[in-house]
Design a protein around this nucleic acid. Structure first.
Length: 459
DNA sequence: AGCACA
């Protein structure tokens, strides 16, 4: 029955809805344009474009009813009509209270992108390359990569949906630049949709996932990076290749870090063959040699960013050295060679001449990009300071060799229990080892610290 | 210029 009387075809007094119905939109009006239009009035949580026979209608849904009311009210009394691309847009409340089943998942704009990288295997594109590519559009908060039936995929979290949309629009269907890819990769197309996620839960920094907002997130010890390709850093530079020798830059060195201390810390992961400590660029660095790359990699992953002492003291930044075999003095206050039979060392504890391990090392100044937080540790105790006190410490002007008879004990030379610690429990090694009571050493700054025997308040 | 499930 056609009713010309009765209900009006269109209601002019519509019940407000947080969903607005837009008409007379330009051809293929995008969601971004709708968001742009409605953004001044509130938060748009959903849209539906290209509605109607002419596909020139749309719905936008605000988070709050009052936001929709404010938009309708504004344009009801405005002399300037709402416009998209210069076309006047007519706005009214929708007769529904929410947009239902707006789009298939993947079309709803969100701040997290789901990126499928076609034509490659997981090992072909590093997370650093992904980070580099997607950082062009804004700060990338987090990345998680995984392999599914669809192929190699990555979730990339931006600050907001607008940034994610920009990246999606620019990169969807495009290929990662060839120079960022291994040579055998011929094509590498990105298929990008929106993820339903809003905040990724990254548990570890690893070769599969990153949280760039949380530098204190621990590195996953089991996530050793593959050695297939030279890794490209976030800045596009090639990372140093793996090595059995680690370069440790020691930051915030408030307490003395001696050969013995380093030996203890790094022995938790395997046999330490050689150690050399030296000054570089005003800071203290050390080279630690393991028998093999794997051990070094485990130690690097586990220790990077951790502090030898609680309170942020003596923070380690580890990278791979270019060295493979250190040429160090068997025993000095700055170096140790544990591969040499201990008997010979004992017989000649090197009483005279200034130790010179601080020179002659080509060192790699770059430190690993990821900085990770300290692990829980007890009060800063300058362990090892007594047994391996460094007399040539920068500001303390004591001539080398004048320190009386260091009770050096080789191999067991670390002044506290060493070795045998399972790599899975490096934390135990950061518990400040027991102090040697006979020395009565109290924690004190390494720089300018008096040797044992000096009273406190020496400065 | 006028309400969307497919």
């Amino acid at each position: 029955m056609s009713s010309s009387s009765g209900q009006p075809q269109f209601r002019y007094t519509q019940t407000p809805s947080k969903v607005l119905h837009l008409r007379n939109l330009p051809w293929e009006c995008t969601e971004e344009e709708l968001i742009e239009l409605g953004k001044p009035f509130g938060k748009i949580v959903n849209t539906k474009c290209n509605v109607g026979a002419n596909r020139n209608q749309a719905f936008v849904e605000f988070a709050d009813l009052n936001q929709a009311i404010s938009m309708v009210s504004y344009y009801a009394s405005s002399s300037e009509p709402a416009q998209v691309r210069g076309k006047t847009v007519y706005i009214q409340y929708s007769n529904r209270q929410e947009i239902v089943n707006n789009k298939v998942s993947g079309e709803v704009a969100g701040n997290v992108l789901l990126v499928t990288i076609e034509g490659v295997e997981a090992g072909d594109v590093s997370i650093d390359v992904i980070h580099l590519v997607f950082s062009a559009f804004g700060f990338v908060h987090k990345i998680a990569t995984f392999e599914k039936a669809a192929g190699f995929q990555a979730l990339i979290q931006y600050t907001d949906a607008a940034t994610a949309s920009e990246a999606k629009n620019a990169l969807d269907g495009r290929s990662i630049p060839r120079y960022l890819l291994p040579e055998h990769v011929t094509s590498c197309y990105l298929r990008i949709s929106f993820s339903a996620h809003t905040d990724l839960n990254i548990k570890f920094q690893s070769h599969r996932s990153r949280d760039y907002t949380n530098p204190y997130l621990p590195v996953n010890p089991s996530a050793i990076e593959g050695n297939l390709q030279p890794m490209v850093g976030p800045d596009g530079k090639i990372k140093e290749p793996e090595s059995n020798v680690l370069l440790a830059a020691i930051e915030n060195m408030q307490y003395a870090v001696t050969v013995d201390v380093l030996y203890t810390v790094f022995s938790a992961f395997g046999t330490v063959q050689k150690i050399a400590i030296f000054e570089k660029n005003g800071g203290t660095q050390a080279l630690i040699q393991y028998p093999d790359v794997t051990t070094a990699a485990v130690a690097k992953e586990a220790l990077e960013g951790h502090c030898i002492y609680d309170g942020g003291y003596c923070k380690l930044h580890l990278s791979y050295s270019r060295h493979t075999d250190l040429n160090v003095k068997a025993y000095s206050d700055k170096s140790r060679d544990y591969t040499i039979s201990s008997t010979g060392i004992l017989s000649n504890p090197q009483a005279s001449s200034v130790p010179s391990a601080s020179t002659g090392w080509q060192t790699n100044p770059q430190v690993a990009g990821t900085s990770v937080g300290s692990i829980g540790m007890q009060a800063p105790v300058p362990v090892g300071q007594a047994a391996a006190w460094d007399p040539s410490k920068t500001t303390f002007a004591s001539p080398a060799g004048t320190f009386p008879g260091q009770p050096f004990v080789p191999s067991a030379g670390a002044p506290f229990p060493t070795s045998g610690g399972p790599p899975s429990a490096p934390a135990g090694y950061f518990q400040a080892p027991q102090q040697r009571p006979q020395y009565g050493v109290q924690p004190r700054p390494a720089s300018g610290a008096p040797p044992y025997g000096q009273p406190p308040g020496y400065f």
